[in-house]
Simulated assay, not measured.
Amino acid sequence: MHKSHLPISDNTNDDGDRQVLQTTGFKNCVTRLLEAGIQFQPNIDVAEEIFLHIKYLKGVVKMPPLRIHEATESIFRNLIAFEQCSIATSHCITSYVFLMSSLLSSLHDAEILHHKNIIKYDLIGGRSGSDSGIHEDVAALFKSMWDGVVLKDCCFSKLCKEVNNYPRSWFDWRRLIAIVKVKCRGYAIVLPSKYFATPWTTMSLIAAVMILVFTAMQTYYTTSTYYRQY
Rank of each mutant, 00 (worst) to 15 (best):
F196N: 10
L141Q: 00
A178Q: 08
D14M: 11
G59E: 15
N43S: 07
D137P: 00
Q41I: 05
I119R: 01
Y166M: 12
E162F: 02
G129S: 06
C92T: 08
C29T: 09
V190T: 09
V30K: 03
S106V: 01
R168D: 12
I179F: 14
M100P: 05
S9L: 09
I38A: 03
F51L: 03
L176F: 09
Q22D: 04
S132V: 07
R77S: 13
D172M: 01
K152E: 04
T31F: 06
A140W: 03
Y56D: 15
I124T: 04
D17H: 02
A208N: 10
E73V: 03
Q39I: 07
I38C: 00
Y187W: 12
A36D: 12
L107H: 00
L103K: 04
A178I: 02
T201Q: 10
I93C: 07
N11I: 15
G125C: 02
F98H: 15
I80D: 08
D15P: 00
R32N: 14
R32H: 03
G186Y: 00
T219P: 01
K3W: 06
Q229A: 14
F82V: 04
E111I: 01
T12H: 04
S101M: 00
L113H: 07
R185G: 08
F98E: 05
M203W: 14
V190S: 09
L66G: 06
N78A: 09
E136I: 00
E162V: 06
C29A: 09
D10M: 08
Y121I: 01
